[in-house]
Nucleic acid binder design. Structure first.
Lengths: 150, 150
DNA sequence: CCTATAATGGTGCATATGCACGTATATGCA
DNA sequence: TGCATATACGTGCATATGCACCATTATAGG
């Protein structure tokens, strides 16, 4: 007899009821689509908005800095930056001191596009917050920051 | 003079401090990688585990049912199912009554793999929960469910 | 100075994600 | 019955995601 491991029905329920990964990922897809829609006419997606906005607040970070900040693989960052560079929204320059490092900076068109996106962001963010019970917000914030420390 | 919209420094701070989308997505990437590592030797990723486990608890759902459950685009679901079907972990059959509908069911190899993955899931889920302040958990749960209702 | 090691970033591959659009089937209404 | 509409699903496209592996540059230790 093959002793195929048996799948415990209680386990199935446990996963459905308590899997943190599933909850976060599912919410991530849902909220991502919502912001994507808000930025659609600017041909921006939620990820690009976040990245450009962070860039606006930081002095010429390296690719590595950015990947860390976004909790993203470095190689993913490299490729995603390329899309924005092609559109002229940011510029990528080698560091003058360290030949390994590349530094990323927002361009004027990038800044301009961000300014256009700002109102859409605010409206969507407020709408999302309204859907979340106010008492639950601080807990969510703290928990998400624990999962991906700033 | 071109009246290029100006990017308000206060806005930049506001986005960094309060963008729900960024927080959820960043945490999603981080936690996804963590579970991916736990399942790596089984050649499963976190998404596939979630999907197969949900399949184990549901009687032959349609592709649409599954996409809704996972808060995912229908066409993404179609394609992702294909990978698991190729590996024989699930079976896709046309509905006998409605020619448009396809129904998905877990196979024995799928069930067996899930049983192997179960302990890894539990250990990782517990570890993640330990990293989250206990008081923050219920709020996160409620908030994520509000963002992507079950 | 020279070499071992570390740090930084890129490529190839596979899968994941969503939208616009297309096809096939079912259903409601004249 | 016959057609308009709705529903379920698939394809083509572009981008996103991460891993294994590779190339280049910096740095520490002799």
């Amino acid at each position: 007899m093959a002793d195929t491991p048996v799948l415990d029905p209680n386990l199935i329920r446990e996963v459905g009821a308590s899997c943190v990964c599933m909850r976060v990922q599912r919410a991530g897809r849902a909220i991502g689509r919502r912001f994507d829609q808000a930025f659609r006419d600017l041909k921006l997606n939620n990820w690009q908005f976040t990245l450009l906005m962070w860039l606006a607040s930081t002095e010429a970070p390296s690719v590595n800095d950015m990947a860390t900040q976004m909790a993203m693989d470095r190689t993913t960052m490299t490729r995603n930056l390329r899309v924005l560079e092609r559109r002229g929204l940011l510029a990528i320059q080698p560091d003058t001191r360290d030949g390994r490092v590349k530094r990323v900076a927002l361009t004027d068109p990038g800044r301009s596009l961000l300014a256009q996106a700002a109102q859409r962001w605010r409206a969507t963010n407020e709408a999302v917050k309204r859907d979340i019970p106010a008492a639950a917000l601080p807990g969510m914030w703290e928990a998400l920051d624990a999962i991906a420390p700033t």
